[in-house]
């Protein structure tokens, strides 16, 4: 499986290393043309405001929206904000995932923290840095983890959104989850392609 990491800004190398660690190929993506060859895409942690400007500067918004409508996308932290259909007190961006997010909802950097989460019965160490959280989910969205009553990991069909930073720890559970989604989507596309033939 070939999984891209949007490489305009942020923790690109960390996400690429995590993707490789679960056994997929990671590709740094800086242009819309590079999206073609991918089975899935990660929108990495970073600064969401800066990434918005850089996506606009690279003329990638429309291509990212088309990609997210068809293939699996995983947004972490800033990437989650870009992926959400609604952002509190701000305009949505890619707007593909049927959730509402609030930015900086755990406070400033001094309040950033690390904790253990229960993700579907698995203990996952989670780093929250000036993190957003998911304030509401639409129909069909699965809530996969909460912290302190707030939704911090959710799945909407082939879209995965995470408020914390799974790329900053050695635990690859969340990346494994995404790889399964990518594989499932690729085999479904292959099956429908064979049906057409």
């Amino acid at each position: 499986m070939k999984i891209g990491v949007l490489a305009l800004q942020g923790a690109v190398a960390e996400h690429a290393a995590a993707i490789e660690a679960v056994g997929a190929e990671a590709v740094a993506v800086k242009t819309a043309a590079q999206l073609e060859a991918l089975d899935g895409l990660v929108l990495p942690g970073g600064e969401s405001t800066a990434m918005r400007r850089l996506i606009a500067g690279a003329n990638m918004l429309e291509a990212l929206q088309v990609f997210a409508a068809q293939k699996p996308v995983f947004g972490t932290c800033a990437g989650l904000i870009l992926l959400a259909r609604d952002v509190e007190n701000d305009a949505p961006h890619i707007g593909a995932m049927n959730i509402t997010v609030a930015r900086n909802s755990f406070g400033r950097q001094i309040d950033s923290f690390i904790t253990d989460l229960d993700v579907q019965g698995t203990k996952v160490s989670a780093v929250f840095i000036r993190a957003p959280h998911i304030t509401a989910v639409g129909d069909g969205v699965e809530v996969l983890a909460t912290f302190d009553g707030r939704i911090v990991l959710a799945r909407d069909g082939h879209l995965l959104g995470c408020a914390f930073h799974p790329e900053l720890t050695e635990n690859r559970y969340v990346f494994g989850l995404f790889l399964e989604m990518v594989k499932k989507s690729a085999s479904a596309r292959l099956a429908s392609h064979e049906n057409v033939l």
């Binding site: 942020g10 923790a11 960390e14 690390i114 840095i129 900053l168």
Partner: peptide
């Protein structure tokens, strides 16, 4: 239990700045 002010969040914050100005 949560931990604040640890290396993972201090260094991690800078990692989120990478590629930036």
């Amino acid at each position: 239990m949560i931990q604040t002010g640890v290396d993972a969040v201090k260094r991690g914050m800078a990692q989120m700045q990478k590629g930036g100005v």
